[in-house]
Each structure stands twice: as C-alpha cells, then as structure tokens.
Simulated assay, not measured.
Amino acid sequence: MKKDEPPLEFPDTLEGFEYSFNEKGQLRHAKTGEPFVFNYREDLHRWNQKRYEALGEIITKHVYGLLEKECHLKKVTLPVDATENEPKSFIFMSEDALTNPDKLLVLIHGNGVVRAGQWARRLIINEDLDSGTQIPYIKKAIEEGYGVIVLNPNENYIEVEKTKAQVQLSSDSSDEPAEKRERKDKIQKETKKRCDFYEKYRNPQKEKETMQMYIRDNGSPEEHAIYVWDHFISQSAAENVFFVAHSYGGLAFVELMIQREAEVKNKVTAVALTDSVHNVWHQEAGKTIRE
C-alpha cells in the first residue's frame, strides 16, 4: 500500500529548497553539500517528479538572471507590438546585436522544458551550469566581438486556470447519443467510486485544470524562429550571421531556410547543428537548400 502523498506545494526559491550553485556552478545542498537527490521521498514518484519540476522552474529564472547580470544581455518582449493584456514571450540580446557591423551569433536550443539560455535542464541540475547552459558560448562570443541573440522557442503559450464554467462546458459539450453518454457516465461513476475508496489509503491530489493561451506569431519553435528572423536578425547590421542550433533547434532552422531561403543564404555565413533532429526530406526542403 502506498503512503499518503504530501501536498504538492514547493518553495519558489533555491534557498527554500536548501540548494545553491557553488563556485564551480554545481548545484549542491546547503547543509550536506551533496548533489540534488530526485528520490527525496521514497515510493512517491509523482511527488518527487513535481518537486523536480518546481526546482526546474526556479533554475530557469536563475539562468535568466545570469543572462542579464553575467552576460549583460537585455530581455526583449515578443510580439514587438504586444498589447498589455495578451500573452507574451521574450528573447535575450546583447546591446550591439542589431548594430554590430561585423558578426552576430544566434543560439537556438532544443525542445522540451528548456528555455532561453539552456541546453539541458538535467545537465544543469546533475552536472553544472557550464555543461547545461549557453553561458560559455555567450561569454566567448562577446569576448570575440560578436553580437548575440538567444532565442526562446519553447515559450509558446501561457497556462491559465479554467473557471468552473469552462470546466463544466468542456464536460457537457459532447455530441454523443444520450444512451452512449449515460453508459459512459455510469462507468465514470463506478470508476470514481473505486478511486475514492483507494484515495482513503493513497490520497493522490487532484491538480487544477488549465487552458493554454498561445503567444501570437510564436506558437511553435518554427514560428518563433521565423518571427525573430523577420523582426530582428534580418534587420541586423552584421555582415556575417552564425547559428548554433541544437536538437529541435536544427529542425527550426531548416524550416526557417525553407520559408526565407534567399534571405538566409544572403545573410548566414555558417550553421553549427549540434545533435540536430532536422530532416530535409520530411521537411520537404528543396534541392538548393539540401545542397
């Protein structure tokens, strides 16, 4: 029999988790000095996973802070003409990103939970900041005279909690015949009864129902790459633009080439595809792009 699940409520700071990054950029426990432990509560995988995700959100904000404080990048809101109330995203840019006449470096990470400035959250937590973030790339680029733009292709929507009316509407909106719906309702009631019985022993918590509100013109990594190209990269003064595209970022770059072939060929000098998942056949890239 499983233990009762503790509340899914976690600290919102690294200090609250009793962790911090040491001088080597390694995440360590403030009291024991030990690395992060995933199985903090034995036999409670869901709770441990939620704790890990909560820590990951804090680390994302920590990396954003490092991009601004250590790398001296500025946060730029997207869409550029966003109204006060609509969902927004952002990218990071060096002060000279659009004015540097010589060279510009553009970084695109892969898919999943990573956000601007990260290559892999797992590496940040289990190894160190240099392994899991783009910060070494950014610092080296600035040192060598590049302007820098850091994309944020996974920030595609915001989540808002559904109202009671919206939850009720989604459950009542079925077009199924009445007989089939009644049969399904009966099964659901029986299932709920069994769940309620087991809940006395396990007590899993029900999570809030949310809905996704997509960010205009940035609703996917591909859309985001094209949007940043149109509004920033294509307008930069740099004679030479360089990309580092990791994992799904490689697919987003190929899609950018398909959609803006002439512009990209004219402006981009070189691309480093690191463990890229692009496929020029699946993405229907033309002969000139494949070459």
Rank of each mutant, 00 (worst) to 15 (best):
141 A>N: 08
99 T>P: 05
158 I>M: 02
151 L>Y: 02
182 E>G: 11
104 L>S: 02
146 Y>Q: 07
168 Q>N: 11
132 G>F: 07
152 N>Q: 07
126 N>Y: 10
152 N>L: 00
109 H>G: 06
97 A>D: 03
122 R>T: 11
106 V>T: 08
177 P>V: 00
136 P>T: 11
174 S>Y: 13
137 Y>A: 07
123 L>P: 01
181 R>F: 15
113 V>Y: 06
149 I>W: 07
182 E>I: 13
172 D>M: 05
126 N>P: 06
125 I>M: 12
155 E>M: 00
182 E>H: 14
156 N>G: 02
121 R>D: 01
148 V>Y: 02
110 G>M: 06
156 N>I: 01
113 V>Q: 11
168 Q>F: 10
172 D>G: 03
101 P>K: 15
99 T>Y: 06
177 P>I: 00
132 G>I: 12
121 R>F: 01
114 V>S: 14
154 N>M: 01
101 P>R: 13
149 I>P: 06
168 Q>P: 01
167 V>W: 02
95 E>A: 06
147 G>P: 14
130 D>I: 08
150 V>A: 08
131 S>F: 12
151 L>N: 05
143 E>V: 00
169 L>K: 15
119 W>P: 06
136 P>L: 10
165 A>W: 03
138 I>M: 09
140 K>L: 10
147 G>A: 10
157 Y>A: 15
106 V>H: 07
95 E>V: 02
140 K>S: 09
118 Q>T: 05
101 P>Y: 12
174 S>F: 13
155 E>H: 05
123 L>Y: 03
137 Y>F: 14
189 K>R: 11
147 G>K: 14
111 N>R: 11
125 I>C: 09
141 A>T: 07
150 V>F: 04
95 E>P: 03
133 T>W: 08
121 R>S: 06
185 D>E: 11
106 V>A: 07
116 A>G: 14
160 V>G: 01
110 G>Y: 02
114 V>L: 00
141 A>D: 06
137 Y>N: 11
134 Q>E: 14
149 I>F: 08
115 R>C: 01
170 S>Q: 12
147 G>T: 13
116 A>M: 12
160 V>C: 02
183 R>H: 04
150 V>E: 08
